[in-house]
Design a protein around this nucleic acid. Structure first.
Lengths: 234, 234
DNA sequence: TGCATTTTATTTGTCGACAAGATTTCGACA
DNA sequence: TGTCGAAATCTTGTCGACAAATAAAATGCA
C-alpha cells in the first residue's frame, strides 16, 4: 500500500491506464491486500496511479460490475463484504459450476487445453508438497479456470471465474488452517478429474468433479466451524 | 431514435443520469431497437440525453460488463452481435439455469413470491391468448426471472438474467414465426411448474423445468432451421 | 451538559476542453 | 487509372475544474 505504482518517467499507452488499475485493484481485493470493507478513495487512487480520476472511476465501475466493490450513491465506495449468512448460495453455485465446467471440458476440450491444465496441476502439486497454502489457493483456482476454458462455454466461464475469485477471498481469510492432510487428496482428485477429461468420459468427470467440489466445500465449512469464535466482524 | 429523451426544463437528480441512460439503452438493445452491430456514438448519445459524455461513458462501461455491447479500444463500440455458431453454449447455460432456479425456488420460495409469479403467469396467459408474440417473450422472461428471485441465489440470478436478456434478443429476431399452437402448451407447462414450486417438490420442479426449457430450445432451433436461408448476416 | 441547527469540509458526479489514436479523404506519383 | 503516402477529420481517452450531495464540525440554545 505504501509503495507507489506510478510509472515515473515512462509514458503510458492510451487506454492502458484503466486496465492496469482494474487488474491491480482486482488482485489486491482477491488477495485481501484490500480487505472486505476497505474504503475506496478515488483521489487517493488517482494520486497513487498518477492519473486523473476519470480512468480510476471507470476501473471502479467495472469492479462494481464484477461484484468486487460496493458503491453507495453519492456516498462512499468500499470493497465488498463477505456475506457469511448466505454462504450456502455460494457453495451451491460453486459446486454446480465445478461440475458443469468439468463435464463440458470432457466433451469439448482440445489437446492443447490439457497442456495448460497439466501445467497448473503440476504447480498445485508443488504448492501442496511445499505446504504453501497461498500458492495452493491460487493454483487451484487457476487449474479449474483452465478446465472451464476448455469447456468452451463463455456463460459458465464468466460465472465460474467470479465464484473462484470469491472463493479465493474466502480461503485467504483462513489460510492458516488450510494445511492439513488433505492437500495430497486434492492432488489425487485432480489427477482423476484430468484423466476423465482426457478420456472424454463426461459422466465420470461430472461425478468426480461433484465429489471434489463437495470435498472442498466441506473443508471450507469445517474451517469456519473451527474458527467461528474468531473475528467474524468482517 | 428520432424522438428526444431530453428532460427539457426539469432538473435531473444527481446520479440518476447514468442509471437512466443504462436502462434506456439496455431496453433498446434487448428489444432490438438497437439491432446487433449498431454503432454506438458517445457524442450522439450525449446530445440525445442532454448530458455530457462522462455519464454516457459510465453507462456504456456497465453495458459492456453485461455483455450487451462490445468495445474496440480506441476504435468504435457497437451493440453485441449474436454468435449463431455457438448457440449451443447459450442453450446449455439456459437449460441449466432454468432447471436450477426452478428447483431452488421450490425449496426457498416465500409465500409472497408466488403472488408475483402468478401475476406474470397471468400476463403470459393473456399474451398467449391474444397471440401477442412480443408480450409473450417479455412476460415469459419476467416470469422466469421472478422464479429465479424466489430461488434466492444471487449468483444464479445474475447469470440467468443475462441469459434471459440474450434470449429475448434472439426471439425478437424471429418473433414473426413464434405464433403457432405452442403458446397454450407453454401456459400449461408454466402452471405445472408453479404448482411444483408451491408444493415444494424440488425434484418435480427440476424435471418440469428441464422439459420446459428443452421445449423452448427446440422451438427456437426449429425457428432457425426454418429461416436459416434468410438474413443471417446480423 | 445535551440536543438541534447551521456552517464547514470532504467526496462524488458532471462538465467542457484537449490530445492521442485511428479512419477517411485527398493528392502526388508511377 | 491505380497505389502509396500525407493531411484532415472523426472518435475515443484523459484531464482539471466546478457543483451537488453527504458527512463532519461548530455554534446556538435550553
Amino acid at each position: 500500500m505504501t509503495e507507489s505504482d506510478a510509472k515515473t518517467g515512462s509514458e503510458r499507452r492510451r487506454g492502458s491506464g484503466v486496465k492496469m488499475v482494474y487488474e491491480v485493484l482486482r488482485d489486491e481485493i482477491i488477495d485481501l491486500t484490500l480487505p472486505p470493507g476497505s474504503p475506496i478513495d478515488e483521489v487517493q487512487l488517482a494520486e497513487r496511479f498518477q492519473m486523473s480520476r476519470t480512468p480510476i472511476r471507470e476501473a471502479l465501475v467495472r469492479l462494481a460490475g464484477d461484484g468486487l466493490i460496493d458503491t453507495l450513491p453519492n456516498r462512499s465506495t468500499m470493497v465488498s463484504t463477505i456475506d457469511f449468512l448466505n454462504l450456502h448460495t455460494f457453495f451451491d453455485a460453486l459446486v454446480l459450476m465445478y461440475r458443469v465446467t468439468t463435464k463440458l471440458a470432457a466433451q469439448y476440450h482440445r489437446p492443447e487445453d490439457l497442456v495448460t491444465i497439466r501445467a497448473y496441476q503440476a504447480a498445485f502439486a508443488d504448492a501442496a508438497k511445499a505446504g504453501d497454502a497461498l500458492a495452493m489457493i491460487a493454483t487451484n483456482a487457476a487449474l479449474h479456470a483452465a478446465i472451464a476454458e476448455a469447456a468452451r462455454n463463455p456463460y459458465f466461464l464468466g460465472l465460474f471465474n467470479r465464484l473462484l475469485d470469491e472463493g479465493r477471498r474466502l480461503l485467504r481469510l483462513y489460510y492458516q488452517s488450510y494445511g492439513d492432510r488433505l492437500p495430497q487428496q486434492f492432488v489425487d482428485e485432480h489427477e482423476e478429474i484430468i484423466a476423465a477429461i482426457e478420456a472424454r468420459n463426461a459422466d465420470e468427470a461430472d461425478r468426480l468433479a461433484r465429489l471434489h467440489a463437495e470435498q472442498i466445500v466441506v473443508q471450507i465449512q469445517s474451517i469456519f466451524t473451527r474458527t467461528e469464535r474468531l473475528s467474524m466482524d468482517v
